[in-house]
Design a protein around this nucleic acid. Sequence first.
DNA 1: TATGAATGAGTGTTCATTCAT
DNA 2: CATGAATGAACACTCATTCAT
Lengths: 199, 199, 199, 199
Amino acid sequence: MAEQSRPLRADAARNRARVLQVAYETFAAEGLAVPIDEIARRAGVGAGTVYRHFPTKESLFQAIVADRMGHLIDVARGMAADDPGQGLFKFLHYMLEEGSADQGLADALAGIGIDLGASVPDGEREFMQMLAELLAAAQAAGCVRSDVAAKDVKTLLVGLQAMQRYRGDDAELVFRIVLDGLASSPGQFPAGSRDCLSR
Amino acid sequence: MAEQSRPLRADAARNRARVLQVAYETFAAEGLAVPIDEIARRAGVGAGTVYRHFPTKESLFQAIVADRMGHLIDVARGMAADDPGQGLFKFLHYMLEEGSADQGLADALAGIGIDLGASVPDGEREFMQMLAELLAAAQAAGCVRSDVAAKDVKTLLVGLQAMQRYRGDDAELVFRIVLDGLASSPGQFPAGSRDCLSR
Amino acid sequence: MAEQSRPLRADAARNRARVLQVAYETFAAEGLAVPIDEIARRAGVGAGTVYRHFPTKESLFQAIVADRMGHLIDVARGMAADDPGQGLFKFLHYMLEEGSADQGLADALAGIGIDLGASVPDGEREFMQMLAELLAAAQAAGCVRSDVAAKDVKTLLVGLQAMQRYRGDDAELVFRIVLDGLASSPGQFPAGSRDCLSR
Amino acid sequence: MAEQSRPLRADAARNRARVLQVAYETFAAEGLAVPIDEIARRAGVGAGTVYRHFPTKESLFQAIVADRMGHLIDVARGMAADDPGQGLFKFLHYMLEEGSADQGLADALAGIGIDLGASVPDGEREFMQMLAELLAAAQAAGCVRSDVAAKDVKTLLVGLQAMQRYRGDDAELVFRIVLDGLASSPGQFPAGSRDCLSR
DNA sequence: TATGAATGAGTGTTCATTCAT
DNA sequence: CATGAATGAACACTCATTCAT
């Protein structure tokens, strides 16, 4: 997403992408404590090459998160276009299913070991704006409580990811509980919102 | 629950309690990565003293968790006795308020860096049993969906703690959303449960 | 052997002897690296008590060695009185059999980790003098080469102990080889010395 | 004997050899307790460099021993080719002269702090086989008792090294005594073996 | 530019020794 | 005097980062 000053040579770009992918999978599967040397080994490059592309370990985290956020934003926009009313719910489900093993990203999102807001302010802002759009559409369709804001949805997402991580594949009921709460009206329980949660 | 074979000498007990307290606060505020030497320094003792009481860093985590769990179980039992119907909600609120900075405990509960079930199996079992009691009372009073089990409440708690950690003091609305979901009936939305969430 | 300024109280003397015995056995069986705390535990006393009697770990080594040397000197004197010609060989065999597990003492004698000559000069001197007496008697009986001195016998003893330690219970042949060499005449092989090695 | 999969870079090989040499000399002179940091300092490298080449302290011991054994085996083969009858005696002398300060190796050989058989099984086996060849040649020439086996020679070597270590440069007489014993015939003393010990 | 070797500060843990109880 | 808790200097080992090849 961020441009390099000079476009990378083909092999350099390949290396960069390779490291990013391997690092994402490794951190997601095994946590942020995996050494850079190990990432380099798995990517089939030298440690120096990792540091050429990502001058610190933290910058590698940031690049991964930015990359993932870009992907998520693309997915979300597509969902919003398809179905404004249910787009938000679909997106939340997508994140939880896709990121079921995404411990590294979730840790990062939850602020463990890295301050996301400060690290990838652009991606964060874009992500929040996308959430706001999904939310507005869902609220316009009467599917979501009118008193929640985008940052509340983000907070719920953080919590949902923690539950997913804790519970593994067996979290469907608790997801339903949270999403029920999100769909209900603030003062009184909604009636017409039944069909927003068809899934 | 079971104490040492011989009661510790007064000064040793004081040091042990001091280390436990300092370690709890420090890990809660700054995560599990803080060095033991730093814990010792803040507690005003030598590193060797920490290791006399807690022979490994992990055993210190376990002692903290066991200590906190014991406290929580006591609190919960009191709340259940006072108000069976709302006891569960009160307890969840208590945990979230008390543990607002309790990042270390939350990490541990979520299984990050320590396997709770294996580490303090007694505390874990007792904690789950206590949750089950609170839950049964709340369900008997018609305040909580009938299809949730104690392990679901535990999962929700993990998620709530993550939200608390992410959002800080401003999480009241998202808590309300989750607890609304927990209170709603499974199949149809409104129940007579309005007054269970008076808080 | 060495006198205290004030005679120890009965219980203090008992503690001292206890620690000495336990330390001897433990170091002999497990090497010099065993912690003082462990010695204290096995002796059933506090670590402070060990340090009251032996102000450093090295001083405990020295006391053990002095104690053992005193014992060996007593044994040797008895053997010399019984049989001047074979006394030396009998004594060497005695040391090897008694000290078969005496790794700690052997280490110390071989100068590993402690300088014996400097540590227990009195015991060392007495031990050497005793060896000289045994040797003189054996040489007078024509059982040992005339060109060896007491310090050579000591050196051979160090070597024999190393072999014992390395080979365990199966060292009889190599002992015989060394003792044959000791019995032979310097320039030409002896003839009459046959019966000195009856064992 | 088997080298690394890829030959080391020139500078890395230099560092590896330097560490090996410094470690050998240091452990030989001061025992196995010298810290790795000190080895690194004396070799003029960082501690990490030592650990890059030898991932544990024990693996450094093993590498030293394997290195020395390889060297000794080469030397021994040469001596056996030159003079079958006296090859064994020459080799024993060589080891004692070369290894006059070789406390670390002797400790290792004697099983103090490291289990040689388990650590460098190939080197150990090759070393024993080489000893067996030297011994067979010496026995065929009538220079060594017919009832000794290679493992006895090894045991004598351990003892001789202990004597060397204890006595320093002044051990010629005791060596002579032991080698006389090795040369003598088992049942009767003189043999025609006079001229085997010309040295 | 890629490599991987080198660096060195930092971490958990041990243990000889001291000292309050 | 005995006890055992406290101390703190080491030590083996790791890993983010730099740099020679």
